[in-house]
């Protein structure tokens, strides 16, 4: 279910570079330089401010290594959705405000020289909501990971499914899940980073289906938003409800990693997972390096092309 997650305005650190602001964690007054020089983390108390997708790419990808995949996809308006404003208006405004084409950017990148496929969500773009484009970009990122055999890293930040695309948004949960299953069959290492906030349809699909789930300190992660729960059970929620630390206590995430260490830890995790994949494939490789006759080499190449052509993620080219 899509829901609005109430986000303290002060957490919108990513967008407010115009002046000093006080940290919601320790009330210390921070200049924009203090924050951007420290990965948008308060140098005094470690409070993690929200990051835009571009800042996130800058944080995780080696300089100059990012190249976008599926950047030409844009949202359509299949339901001709009109609430207080038409959907295309809202899209246009989000594009203008964030400078992004959608709530998720996908691309190839290198992290400490390791090749990866990366998908990064931005809460600033219509609450990071998942519509058809986010689903399709996720699929293409997964397909790219399977084609290249590079691992997939997804940084999640989302209020849930995008209401303006109605049922089509809901079905993106099913679509992304199918992509995860194809990656699992490959197998492609798949790691998600849950950042503030990750909720709703994203939480109930790819975000929690990763091989390793990493959370950022203090980030909210839940299926139903706090307000919805409060209204349903008519009780005030505990202060740590749905936070990364509480999810850790309840066994819902693998580890909490402070942002300043995020890149190195991700590379370490991916390296270990890849090590596993390499071990599993070792006998195959050895077999393949055995000297083969001319006919054998041809047959092998033919099998490989055939296997690639029949690969499930390739089969439904539009």
């Amino acid at each position: 279910m899509a829901q609005k997650v109430s986000v303290d305005i002060s957490r919108r650190g990513g967008n407010s570079l115009d002046g000093a602001q006080s940290c919601p964690g320790c009330k210390e007054l921070l200049s924009p330089g203090d924050l951007s020089g420290n990965s948008m983390v308060c140098p005094h108390c470690g409070h993690h401010f929200r990051m835009t997708a571009r800042q996130r790419i800058e944080l995780l990808a080696d300089p100059g290594s990012w190249s976008e995949i599926a950047g030409n996809l844009r949202s359509a308006d299949p339901l001709e959705f009109f609430d207080l404003r038409p959907y295309p208006d809202r899209l246009e405004e989000a594009e203008y405000e964030t400078g992004l084409s959608e709530a998720m950017l996908t691309g190839r990148a290198r992290m400490n020289k390791m090749d990866v496929i990366m998908a990064v969500m931005d809460f600033g773009f219509m609450g990071g909501s998942m519509g058809s484009v986010v689903g399709e970009r996720f699929w293409r990122a997964a397909a790219e990971a399977m084609d290249t055999r590079f691992p997939l890293v997804v940084v999640c930040a989302s209020g849930g499914a995008r209401m303006q695309e109605g049922i089509l948004s809901l079905l993106q949960m099913a679509k992304t899940t199918c992509a995860v299953e194809l990656m699992a069959e490959a197998p492609i290492p798949f790691v998600t980073v849950l950042t503030h906030p990750t909720t709703g349809g994203v939480m109930a699909s790819f975000a929690t289906l990763a091989d390793v789930i990493v959370a950022e300190p203090g980030a909210l992660m839940c299926f139903s938003g706090p307000r919805v729960i409060e209204q349903t059970i008519k009780e005030k929620l505990p202060e740590d409800f749905g936070l990364a630390e509480s999810n850790m206590d309840h066994g819902q995430v693998d580890l909490i990693v402070p942002r300043t260490e995020l890149k190195d830890r991700l590379v370490q995790i991916l390296g270990l997972l890849e090590g596993g994949v390499a071990c599993a494939l070792q006998p195959l490789w050895e077999e393949k390096t055995r000297p083969a006759g001319r006919r054998g080499a041809f047959a092998q190449a033919f099998d490989r092309i055939k296997a690639l052509a029949n690969a499930p993620w390739r089969s439904s080219q539009r």
């Binding site: 030409n72 996809l73 844009r74 949202s75 359509a76 299949p78 519509g131 058809s132 484009v133 689903g135 399709e136 699929w139 695309e165 089509l168 079905l171 993106q172 099913a174 679509k175 899940t177 199918c178 992509a179 439904s316």
Partner: peptide, 10 residues
């Protein structure tokens, strides 16, 4: 399920 969704491409 892969076909689910409507978007603009080019």
């Amino acid at each position: 399920f892969r076909r689910m969704g409507v978007w603009k491409e080019n």
